[in-house]
């Protein structure tokens, strides 16, 4: 499946089906992440149920604490 993630064209395995799965794929699942799918912000509670499809445009922003 081909996606655009943070502006980059990336290929992810077809086993990745949901937003939650995508976060695991990018090893971001332990972090607090804001996800935007096709210009639509998703609540954290929706990550598990939201499916992703070929050509989706995804923005992932994770929170960090350093300063």
């Amino acid at each position: 499946m081909k996606l655009t993630v943070n502006g980059d064209h990336v290929e992810v395995p077809n086993s990745v089906k949901t937003v939650a799965g995508l976060l695991v794929h990018f090893e971001l699942h332990h972090k607090v992440v804001i996800v935007e799918r096709n210009a639509e912000i998703l609540e954290q509670a929706k990550h598990t149920e939201t499916l992703i499809f070929d050509k989706d445009k995804i923005e992932l922003v994770h929170f960090v604490g350093g300063g």
């Binding site: 943070n6 502006g7 980059d8 912000i41 609540e43 923005e59 994770h62």
Partner: peptide
């Protein structure tokens, strides 16, 4: 948010949250 080494930049409207 940005990553200067990976050359990423992201800017999203979060009003809906």
């Amino acid at each position: 948010s940005f990553d200067l080494w990976k050359n990423h930049h992201s800017s999203i409207n979060v009003d809906k949250i």
